[in-house]
Every structure is written in structure tokens, then in C-alpha cells.
């Protein structure tokens, strides 16, 4: 069984313009969950969010697993009803295998992100 590991990340809710303008640490992935929300795979997001009322929190409530593209596509063909992005890289989110997943499509692998309370179920459904 694959290990779906807890992500050490940060999550920010702020006015969309502040998120648009922000920059993230090198190497970190930033997933725009909503116009006013972003998940950054870095323990502390560098850069300043230009919103005095922003909520910036350490986020350890997500878990993730890298799956190589061929396996991921096979899994998604069986377990995902909605149309996946074709460009790379790309980010998408929706129900997959009965779980709310966030998907990051890299050049040759896919990061599957799930809320940690459902991580065991993702591992099991990935078989």
C-alpha cells in the first residue's frame, strides 16, 4: 500500500488580489483552492500577504502522495468522472474514488492531496 504522508504546508485565506500578488518560496507548490484561498507546500510562506485581515496558518491537515503519471492516469480513468486538465503542469480538484482530492499534474508524476482524516482511505483505494 502506498504511504500517504502528512504535508507540512501553509494555508492562506486573503483577498484575491493579495494572493495574486504574493510570491512563494522556491520549490514550493502553491495550489489555488479558491480565489481567496491558497495552499502552499512550504512550512512558512515567504513573502508578504498584503491583507491585514488575512488568515495565515500552518497547515498540517492535508496528506499527499506522488504517483507516476501512467499509474495515476489509470487510477483516474477508473475513479474520476470529471474531465482532467490536459496541459502540464496543472492543478485540479474534485471527487475521485469517493474522496475530495486535489491533484497536481507534474511532467511525469501526479501529486494527490487529500484531507488527512481521509488519507487512510485514499491509500486503500489506491490499492
Amino acid at each position: 500500500m502506498r504511504v500517504v504522508e502528512r504535508l507540512n504546508a501553509a494555508r492562506i485565506v486573503a483577498i484575491p488580489a493579495a494572493i495574486d500578488a504574493a510570491t512563494w518560496p522556491t520549490g514550493a507548490l502553491a495550489f489555488r483552492l479558491a480565489p481567496d484561498e491558497v495552499l502552499v507546500t512550504a512550512s512558512t510562506p515567504a513573502g508578504v500577504i498584503d491583507d491585514a485581515h488575512a488568515i495565515v496558518e500552518r497547515e498540517t491537515g492535508f496528506s499527499a502522495v506522488w504517483v507516476d503519471s501512467a499509474q495515476a492516469i489509470d487510477f483516474l480513468e477508473r475513479e474520476c468522472d470529471w474531465e482532467l486538465p490536459r496541459e502540464r503542469p496543472a492543478f485540479a480538484q474534485g471527487m475521485v474514488a469517493g474522496l475530495p482530492l486535489k491533484l497536481w499534474f507534474g511532467q511525469d508524476r501526479v501529486l494527490m492531496v487529500v484531507a488527512s482524516p481521509c488519507a487512510a482511505d485514499l491509500a486503500e483505494r489506491l490499492r
Binding site: R11, V13, A14, I15, D36, E37, D51, H53, A54, I55, E57, E59, T60, G61, F62, A115, S116, P117
Partner: peptide, 12 residues
């Protein structure tokens, strides 16, 4: 409402 809302149920 001019608010920011973050659900932290799974986070905390």
C-alpha cells in the same frame, strides 16, 4: 460581509 473564512476542522 468583508470577512475571510477558514475551515480548520481537519487542520487542527
Amino acid at each position: 460581509a468583508d470577512v475571510r473564512l477558514m475551515n480548520q476542522t481537519f487542520s487542527l
